Computed example of a mutant assay.
Amino acid sequence: MPESQATDASTTLPPPPGVVTEQVRLVEAPRAGELATGWRVVTACLWISVIVAFAAVWSTSVQLGLSTWWLGPRADPRSPIIRLAPFVAPLLMTIAAFNNMRRMAWYGMGASLVTAVFGIVDLGRAPRLAAVELLVAGLAFAVSAASLTGTYRPVDVGAGDGSAESADDTVR
């Protein structure tokens, strides 16, 4: 074999003109405060289930003739705004889960406390329906608190060199 055709494996040739050698990121890196993908799916399913559970309470209330405070009696129902109020926090949490919002676990615990208020007020009017509402809110709180384990946390960038700067968007 002639020497001109022999190639040395240790040398690399530059890429031909017009060829891009940079790597492209197809997916953004997670930010501190966001939920891991699995916990985001669990959170979205949780709040959809809360919406379904409150719809079941609504249906049961109508079928049994027991009026919750937010529905009112059949003869004199509450305004539509008040009747839909228990669905606002779960709906906002569902939208937030689909949009990968930061601090979802904390907002979820707050939304479950707001949901629990509906059950607390119903304790005097329809105690068994109130128990279901409180159970749903309690389970939502428990799952939201558990989702803290799947929250990305910030990392100190300069931990080894003595600097105290922290990158808010860097996760571990």
Rank of each mutant, 00 (worst) to 15 (best):
V121Y: 06
V136D: 05
V136Q: 08
S144Y: 05
T12R: 15
D169K: 03
S10K: 15
R172H: 09
E133L: 05
A105E: 04
G72C: 02
A131Q: 15
G33Q: 01
T170G: 03
G160P: 00
P77K: 07
P30F: 02
Q63A: 15
M104V: 02
N100Q: 15
A111V: 00
L113Q: 07
E133V: 00
V136N: 06
A9M: 12
E34P: 06
R128I: 14
V117T: 08
I81P: 01
N100W: 09
P80I: 12
V27N: 10
V171P: 09
V143K: 03
A6D: 03
W106I: 06
E22H: 12
P16Q: 10
T170R: 05
T149E: 08
R128Y: 14
V24A: 13
A32P: 03
V57E: 04
R128P: 00
S147K: 01
R74L: 13
S59L: 13
G150S: 08
T12M: 14
L66C: 07
G33M: 05
L134Q: 07
R78I: 02
A116I: 13
L13N: 15
G138P: 10
I48N: 00
P15Q: 10
T12P: 06
P17M: 02
E22Q: 13
A97N: 06
V132H: 12
Q23R: 15
N99L: 15
D161W: 02
F87K: 02
V121Q: 05
V171S: 12
D122A: 13
V132L: 15
S144F: 05
A111N: 00
E28P: 07
L92F: 03
Q23S: 11
R78Y: 00
L92Y: 00
L113Y: 05
S166R: 14
M109Y: 04
P127C: 10
G119Q: 09
P15N: 09
V155M: 11
L64I: 06
P127E: 11
S79V: 11
G108L: 00
A29I: 01
V27W: 09
V19A: 09
P154Q: 04
F98H: 12
F98I: 14
M1G: 14
A142T: 13
A9C: 00
A97L: 08
W106E: 04
L91K: 01
P15Y: 07
I51N: 02
G158Q: 07
D76M: 11
L71F: 01
A75V: 06
W47H: 03
G38F: 11
A9E: 12
S49W: 03
F98G: 15
G33C: 02
M101I: 13
M104C: 03
V117P: 01
A9R: 13
L46V: 01
T11D: 06
S79E: 13
S112W: 05
P17R: 03
T151G: 01
A85R: 03
W69T: 12
T68C: 09
A55T: 06
S79T: 14
W69Y: 14
R128S: 13
I95C: 07
S61A: 12
P154G: 02
D156Y: 09
M104P: 03
E28H: 06
S61Q: 03
R125I: 05
A105T: 03
A131V: 11
A159I: 11
V27D: 10
I120Y: 14
D76S: 15
T115L: 06
G158D: 12
L46I: 00
F87H: 05
N100S: 15
A29S: 13
F141K: 06
P14V: 08
F118M: 08
A97T: 04
